[in-house]
Amino acid sequence: MSRAALLVLADGRFPAGGHAHSGGAEAAVRAGRIDSAADLADFCRGRLHTAGLVAAAFAAAAALGADPVELDAAADARTPSPALRAAARKLGRQLMRAARATWPSDELDALARAFPKGAHQPVVLGLAARAAGLGGEDAAHCAAYESVSGPASATVRLLSLDPFDATGVLARLAPELDLVVDRAVAAARLALTEGTDALPAASAPLLEIGAEAHAARPMRLFAS
């Protein structure tokens, strides 16, 4: 296992489309729910323990060798908002392209064939980690971190927030992020024997509702 490979995959500049998505932050800013670094911290904490935990568990399960087609169906059921399902598949497709070019793998090729329009991003992320020689914990760390780093950098653009404040928010979440990763990996290991019902289904009503409000908005900076 290479720690440097983890840095490549987790790099915000890894060309997999994340820069065009705000992880629900734009909808929350427009609705007046995020207006400061403190709000951003609250938003990120909530997202980490819901969408972040679920994404981390799915990424870990895929990295540990669970059936990606079953994982994709289970991810669909955990994503009631059609706008979020579309965003997850779009990002999954973009990540698939980047991952196949970076770490060629038969498993990635097979998943790309099964889902030509994209599988759920955390499932692709898990397989990408596997192709890069990384483990379930690495994949979970990537997914959990992405769940908060995306909203943080988007909020810097949306509110002209001080970038040092936004980075401080991420740094202060780090211990909680590690705990989320532990829960995600434990659930992923359980899912290998018990099936996808063992994976978390933590939901955030305002992320789902906000995603639909955002998709219906004619003027927006971020795709989701």
């Binding site: 500049r13 060309p15 997999a16 489309g17 994340g18 820069h19 065009a20 998505h21 705000s22 779009k90 497709r93 973009q94 990540l95 392209r97 980047a98 988007a154 653009r157 927006r220 900076l221 971020f222 795709a223």
Partner: peptide, 18 residues
């Protein structure tokens, strides 16, 4: 139309996946 997250140059140069 491709959505660029306020950064069109990123979408045409650094991360062309979309």
């Amino acid at each position: 139309a491709v959505e660029t997250g306020a950064c069109p140059h990123t979408a045409i140069r650094d991360d062309i996946s979309a």
